[in-house]
Nucleic acid binder design. Structure first.
Lengths: 205, 205
DNA sequence: ACCTGAACACCGTTCAAGT
DNA sequence: ACCTGAACACCGTTCAAGT
């Protein structure tokens, strides 16, 4: 019953979902696999290499968007699929933002997204700028989204308007109340729409 | 020569800039202040509380934007000031994204930004959505920006087109080459402009 | 090829005790 | 009010040695 690289990765993904990024330690992972900590280092050079494998796993299938969709909708769909992939694993956005992955799933996502943007009419010299603008928004948004999940789990402080915001900061108070009435999907779509509308302006649409 | 809360915070900021977020440990901070590790716990409940104080410090002055600027430019200026504040400290974006701060500097930034957005003509029910869209973009962008700094410092892999991208992923290859010719400021401004142009559409401008 | 065992150099946090 | 000293329960990683 020897371990393979994939067993270690599968165990790491399970531990990540159960315990979160802080709980994903080499020692706990080893224990859950029934081996000593040092055994893991035969399969992965160090913890960073394991995290990069997790990041690449998170990105699997994200680029598989319907190629028949019109360019703008295809770009939107890629952004949505990225968000859902990050949300599918606990602390997924933080894992991805902390790694510098140059593996097939990640590269293919970039390739497909750049092609979709080019098809919308964005000048070739701007496709990477547009790609990173959208990707940075998605990453930032999901990091905050998953960070709020964590707050709710560990503290009793509610992110809805509290004493501090209603008193001295009236604009925040009413703004947050409207925000609280929207679904997480709505909140994401709002920023995504801003970016896509901004892109329209650059394509003469 | 007893320590005060501010001495601990100042020491933490210095250590953060020198060693980065990984190097900012309670034990190293204590050593740099000439006390034992347990002494810190008299001043801050735990490490998380200290990180929240750092985050609030990072946000100091960010809201001090020229109130006479026209609303769109005021909103842009707030986003730029946030980015610069995050860049001013090593790993600043990761520190801020990991904390849930409800302290004056942070709240005032939200208040001023929501008011600027309202002044552009964004409907009141959407001001928080628009605020978070811009803030999430800035956070995501600077996290990636500072993460690249870290890659350059620790590895010799260059983020410019390498063997993998030029071969199987041609669109990425050429896109990244154009991207590499822009300054960091340009790259940030591109996404910011997309968001602001998208907002124009929602204000009938 | 794959893992054990032991060790090294660290962590954050608590708590009684000191001044 | 502010800190020491000692302890507890952890970390990631290395490396010789085993099978």
């Amino acid at each position: 019953m020897r371990l393979h690289r994939e067993d270690v990765l599968a165990g790491a993904l399970g531990l990540l979902d159960q315990e979160g990024l802080e709980g994903l330690t080499m020692r706990r992972l080893a224990a859950s696999l029934g081996v000593g900590p040092s055994a893991l280092y035969w399969h992965y050079r160090d913890k960073q290499a394991l995290l990069e494998a997790i990041a690449e796993e998170i990105m699997s299938g994200v680029a598989d968007v319907d190629a028949a969709l019109p360019p703008r909708e295809r770009t939107a769909e890629l952004a949505r699929r990225l968000r859902l992939a990050l949300l599918a694993r606990r602390d997924g956005a933080r894992v991805l933002s902390g790694t510098y992955v140059r593996l097939p799933n990640t590269l293919r996502f970039g390739e497909v997204a750049v092609l979709a943007l080019a098809a919308t009419g964005v000048p070739e010299a701007e496709t990477a700028l547009a790609f990173f603008a959208v990707q940075d928004y998605v990453l930032g948004h999901v990091i905050e989204e998953q960070s709020r999940e964590h707050q709710l789990a560990t503290t009793d402080r509610t992110p809805t308007p509290d004493a501090a915001t209603t008193g001295d900061y009236p604009a925040i108070g009413t703004a947050i109340r409207h925000w609280a009435e929207r679904t997480p999907d709505d909140r994401f779509e709002y920023g995504l729409r801003l970016l896509l509308d901004g892109l329209d302006r650059r394509t003469g649409a």
